[in-house]
Amino acid sequence: MSMFERKPLAALVGALALSAVLSACHSQPVRSGQPLGLGTPVAAAQLAAWDIDIDADGRGLPPGSGTVAAGQRIYETRCIACHGVGGQNGIADRLAGGQGSLATKTPVRTVGSFWPYATTLFDYVRRAMPFDSPQSLAPDEVYAVSAYVLHLNGLLPADGRLDAASLPRIVMPNRDGFKVDDRPDVVGTRCMKDCVPGS
């Protein structure tokens, strides 16, 4: 397999002979429940570029801030081609509107109408957007464009600004709209003969 180092044959034979000796004297069965001691210790500083998740309380939000106005400029250069003017009618997901539609026959799920936490917006944009260049925005830019998307949904005023303290305090309209899995909500029936179809 490619992931194993290739060794010259002589070295391999030597290694086999050595391991035979070792196993005769030192080989021990591994007891289950004991760590095997594999893996390399890793320090927080090494992980900084990967450890970018934001939780629902805002833990993990970086220093920095951004305004709605700055966010609009970023949106119009980096996002509008796919998400459309004002976050609507683009070729990618709709980002604004739809509030009050969830219980209707034509629900519209957007950041403003559906998402329970504003922290999710920062986390997702930072890790995955813009789609054509993910992880290219600096924290200030992510704050700004998040502020603009929230503004488009009426959740921040035109002169609004976001930072690590204010972002988790945004109350999303659908904050209480989710319940943890409560199935089974549908129970099938096992009729075998003269059943009513579809029931």
Partner: peptide, 27 residues
């Protein structure tokens, strides 16, 4: 606690007729 990532809020949640949604419906 769960992180509330986009894929477990905006997506992969089940919107019900009363406007509420079922979340963490894994099985």
């Amino acid at each position: 606690a769960p992180w509330q990532s986009r894929q477990e809020t905006s997506k992969y949640t089940d919107l019900l007729p009363d406007g509420t949604s079922r979340q963490f419906s894994f099985v």
